[in-house]
C-alpha cells in the first residue's frame, strides 16, 4: 500500500446522509475480477444520465472535482454492503480522504486497507464543510488533524495501528504472517476444534 501522510486539497461535497455502498458502486459492476478502473463507475447512477452522459450538476462532474482528493459526505457514509469495490472506486477516482460525522464500520475498515483516510469530525465542522464545497483543507495523518482554510484544526480519531499503517504503507497481511508461530500455538492449544 502507498504511504499516506498529508493530503491537501479542495473538497467535493455530497451532502446526503446514509450514502450506501450500492450508490458508491452499483452491483452490476461487481462482476469484475480485478480492482482496476472502478473510478469511472463510482456513483454511476447519480453521476450519468440514461444515455451515459455526465450530469453536469452532480458534484463529481463539476469543474475541479477531477483533481480533488477529499470527499465530504453526509452522516453515516458507506453503510450497507461490504463490497470493497466501493473504496476501490473512490480511490481510483482520486480521493484519499472521506470526511463525515460517522462512517460505517465495514467501509471504514476497507478504506484503511486502501489508503483512504476516514476522517470523523464534530457536527459544527461538518456543517461548515457541507456549506462550503471546494474549501481547501489539509488532512495530516501524523497529527491526526484536519485543518480548515481559516487555520482552525480539529483532531480526528484514528487508532495507532491504522495510523502507522497509513504513514508507513504497512502491508497488514505481512504483519499477520509474522504472527504465524502464535497462530500455530493457538490452533494446537485450544480446548475444542472447529
Amino acid at each position: 500500500m502507498e504511504k499516506v501522510t498529508r493530503i491537501e486539497s479542495a473538497t467535493v461535497v455530497m451532502p446526503q446522509t446514509d450514502i450506501d455502498t450500492d450508490q458508491i458502486m452499483p452491483a452490476r459492476f461487481l462482476t469484475t475480477t480485478t480492482k482496476e478502473g472502478l473510478g469511472d463507475a463510482a456513483f454511476s447512477d447519480w453521476r450519468y444520465d440514461d444515455d451515459g452522459k455526465p450530469i453536469p450538476d452532480f458534484p463529481l462532474n463539476r469543474p475541479g472535482a477531477a483533481g480533488s482528493k477529499v470527499l465530504v459526505a453526509g452522516n453515516n457514509f458507506g453503510c450497507g454492503s461490504s463490497r470493497e469495490h466501493a473504496p476501490w472506486g473512490i480511490v481510483d477516482f482520486g480521493f484519499r480522504a472521506v470526511i463525515s460525522t460517522q462512517i460505517a464500520d465495514i467501509f471504514r475498515n476497507n478504506s484503511l486497507k486502501n489508503g483512504l483516510v476516514p476522517v470523523i469530525v464534530p457536527d459544527d465542522v461538518h456543517a461548515w464543510l457541507l456549506a462550503n464545497p471546494g474549501a481547501k483543507v489539509t488532512v495530516d495523518v501524523a497529527s491526526k488533524t484536519l485543518t480548515l482554510p481559516d487555520g482552525r484544526s480539529v483532531e480526528f480519531p484514528l487508532d495507532g495501528f491504522s495510523q502507522h499503517c497509513l504513514l508507513e504503507g504497512v502491508d497488514q497481511l505481512g504483519y499477520l504472517q509474522s504472527q504465524d508461530a502464535a497462530i500455530d500455538q493457538f490452533e494446537k492449544a485450544r480446548s475444542w476444534q472447529p
Binding site: R83, P87, N110, L173, Y175, L176, Q177, Q179, D180
Partner: peptide, 23 residues
C-alpha cells in the same frame, strides 16, 4: 459473525485470522 472486505478475505484465506479492535 460479521462481514469483511476482499482484502480481509485474503487475510483469512492466508492466515485464518483477522486484525480486529474490540467492538
Amino acid at each position: 459473525a460479521f462481514g469483511i472486505g476482499s482484502t480481509e478475505v485474503g487475510h483469512v484465506l492466508a492466515t485464518q485470522t483477522l486484525l480486529q479492535r474490540r467492538p
